[in-house]
Simulated scan of single mutants.
Amino acid sequence: MKLGIVLAVTIIGFCLFSPSILLAEKTNPVEIVSINHAKISADQETISFKLGAPVPVTMFAIKGERPRLVIDFPESIYRKKNLIPLPEGELAENIRIGLHKEPKSKARIVIDLSKNYAVDYKHSFTESENLLEVVLTRGAIAEKTVNIPQETEKAPVSNDVLPVKDEKTVISPGVDTNTIAPAVAATEEVKDAPPVVSEDNPSPAVQEISPGMPQLLEVSFDDSSNRGEMVLFHLNDFFPPTVSAIEKNNPRVLCDFPSMKLSSDVQKQIDAGGKYVESVRTAYHADKDMVRVVLDLSPDRDYDLQQVFFKNDNLFVLIVNELPSEKDAQ
């Protein structure tokens, strides 16, 4: 078996597709039919959720440097994109949707709130319409504590589509490991192999997260697109990973994010069950101060990987496809 890696890395200033969330494998889950945001005034906004049936939601707010409102819908699914930017919102900035299977199946909605104001909330449910409405109200001005990274610390990026690399590397049978160049080359040091860390036995996950630190906020899987099976990484800034491949009995792709912290919202294990991607595992390695995401791939296939970064959404996407056989390529 060969594992082909296409290092086609594209940086995009706007989203060209709508990645959807992996659907729950259960009988008759409740569907979240639609999510709508409305700005009522400078001091009030609403977010409404149209449901297929009533569900007992759980709602709580998280304060701090990254304030957010979390809503859990038990035994529920959402079939559309898992990131909804709110460019017109002043109290709410984004809506993120994730699917959690453990300990119980649920759809988790995370509303990223304004860092400039304290935001109060209340909610109501209209039973005749199966409509949950969340009302956000502006509070006092919040104290600024977030340190914004300097522009000089970023790789220079244009808002246009930039093809960074376009070459193909094939890992020959019998080779255990091979390091693939990072998504964006920054210094000569990136030529070295990734840190030797066991993805199965990560270091104790002790994290000290300070304002402005790079964070992996969410990982999700999507197999609904005709572009291929996608693993989506939502970050808090432009931090592309180093991608490498392991070819043994169980082929894997490793995405290493150096000097990265892991948000508590990230699902550590995703049982993807895709044609190509069997599972996605995420762990923080304290001894290397890095986050590693492992894609367990189906064996006996030749794979083709594409990397895309949606700059405005801080969204890195790994697209997995199968390479055509030599016979088909002729």
Rank of each mutant, 00 (worst) to 15 (best):
M1A: 14
K2N: 12
K2Y: 05
K2Q: 12
I5M: 13
A8E: 13
I12E: 12
I12W: 01
F14N: 09
F14I: 07
S18G: 06
V30F: 07
I32M: 13
S34H: 10
H37C: 09
A38I: 05
I40A: 08
I40R: 13
Q44I: 06
I47A: 03
S48W: 08
K50P: 00
L51V: 14
G52S: 14
G52L: 12
A53C: 05
M59S: 10
G64D: 15
E65M: 15
R66Y: 14
R66L: 11
V70S: 11
D72H: 11
S76H: 09
I77L: 09
N82E: 13
I84D: 05
I97R: 09
L99K: 11
P103N: 14
S105I: 12
K106A: 06
S114V: 04
K115V: 02
H123W: 15
F125R: 15
T126H: 12
E133A: 11
G139N: 15
K144H: 12
T145D: 15
I148R: 13
E153K: 10
K154Y: 14
A155C: 02
N159D: 06
D160Y: 10
P163W: 09
K168C: 06
V170T: 11
P173S: 12
T177C: 01
T177H: 08
N178G: 04
V184L: 06
T187H: 02
T187D: 11
E188C: 04
V196D: 08
D200L: 14
N201Y: 15
S203W: 00
P204F: 05
V206M: 06
Q207F: 09
P211L: 10
P211C: 07
P214A: 13
Q215W: 01
L216M: 13
L216I: 06
L217S: 03
E218T: 00
V219P: 00
S220R: 03
S220D: 09
D223C: 03
S225N: 11
M230D: 07
M230T: 00
V231E: 05
L235E: 11
V253D: 10
C255H: 04
C255M: 07
C255S: 05
P258I: 06
S259E: 15
L262G: 01
S264K: 15
K268D: 11
D271W: 01
V280N: 08
D287T: 02
D289A: 08
D289P: 00
M290S: 06
M290A: 07
V291N: 04
V291S: 08
R292T: 05
V293R: 06
D296A: 04
S298W: 00
P299Y: 03
D302W: 05
L305F: 02
V308S: 10
V308N: 05
V317P: 00
E322L: 01
L323I: 07
S325W: 04
S325T: 13
K327A: 14
D328Y: 09
A329H: 01
A329I: 02
